[in-house]
C-alpha cells in the first residue's frame, strides 16, 4: 500500500525533467543570453523541443500526466477556491484545478513566445546571419516609427534591438513579461499549497531524491 501511494505522490520523470528544463531555459533566456543573439535562439528552440515532449506526454503519459486528468475547468477552479475558503482539503491525483489553469496559461504563453521567436529568428544559422534577416523584417515599412518609440520607452538599457522587430517582437516581449508574472503567481501558488498541505507539493516535483 505504501509503495502505491509513494508512487502516486511523485510526478513521473518526464514531467519533472520537462518542468525543470523549461524553468532553466526560461531563466537562461531571461537573465543570461542576449536578446536576439544566437544562444538566445538556440535556447528557445531547445525550450520548444522540451515543451513539445511535455505536450506529447500529455497524450501518451501515465493518467495523471495527461491533459484529460487536468482539463481546464473554471467551475472546478471556483469549487477549489470555495474549498480553500472553507478550509477543506481534497487530494488531487493530478494538478489541482487552479494549478491546471496555471499550467495552460503558462503553456499558452510559452507557445506564443516560441511561435513569435521562431517567426523572427527563422531557421539556422543564427550567428550573425539572423541579424540580417531581423533587420530585413524591421525595415519593412509601416511600423518603423512606433517601434522605435516603444523600444525606446520600454528598454532603456538595451540597444533597442528587439524594439526593431515589429509587432512580432512586441508580442514576444509582452508574452515574456506575462510569463514572468505567471511564474511569480505559480511560485506564490506553490508556497500557498505548501503551507496549506505540507511539503508534499515540493517533494512531488523535486528533481532528484527519494
Amino acid at each position: 500500500m505504501t509503495a502505491t501511494t509513494a508512487n502516486r505522490r511523485r510526478w513521473d520523470p518526464i514531467v519533472r525533467i520537462t518542468h525543470w528544463s523549461v524553468a532553466i531555459a526560461v531563466l537562461a533566456n531571461a537573465v543570461i543570453t542576449e536578446e536576439g543573439s544566437g544562444p538566445h535562439i538556440w535556447v528557445g528552440y531547445a525550450l520548444a523541443a522540451i515543451l513539445a515532449l511535455r505536450l506529447l506526454w500529455g497524450l501518451v503519459g501515465p493518467p495523471e500526466a495527461r491533459f484529460s486528468a487536468f482539463w481546464p475547468s473554471p467551475r472546478k477552479a471556483l469549487g477549489h477556491l470555495r474549498e480553500i475558503r472553507a478550509g477543506k482539503r481534497t487530494a488531487h491525483a493530478s494538478h489541482n484545478p487552479l494549478g491546471a489553469l496555471m499550467v495552460y496559461a503558462i503553456w499558452g504563453t510559452l507557445l506564443t513566445i516560441i511561435a513569435t521567436g521562431i517567426a523572427m529568428a527563422g531557421p539556422p544559422p543564427w550567428d550573425g546571419a539572423e541579424r540580417g534577416e531581423g533587420r530585413h523584417v524591421a525595415v519593412a515599412p509601416g511600423h518603423a516609427g512606433e517601434r522605435g518609440e516603444d523600444g525606446g520607452e520600454r528598454e532603456d538599457g538595451e540597444e533597442g534591438e528587439e524594439g526593431e522587430e515589429g509587432p512580432l517582437g512586441e508580442i514576444h516581449e509582452t508574452a515574456a513579461n506575462l510569463l514572468y508574472l505567471l511564474i511569480l503567481l505559480h511560485l506564490a501558488g506553490v508556497i500557498f499549497e505548501t503551507r496549506r498541505n505540507g511539503r508534499q507539493v515540493l517533494v512531488a516535483m523535486a528533481p532528484i531524491g527519494r
Binding site: 518526464i14 520537462t18 513539445a52
Partner: peptide, 10 residues
C-alpha cells in the same frame, strides 16, 4: 528521450 527531443528539434 529529452536529449533526443532536443537533438531532433535542432
Amino acid at each position: 528521450v529529452a536529449l533526443q527531443a532536443l537533438a531532433c528539434a535542432f
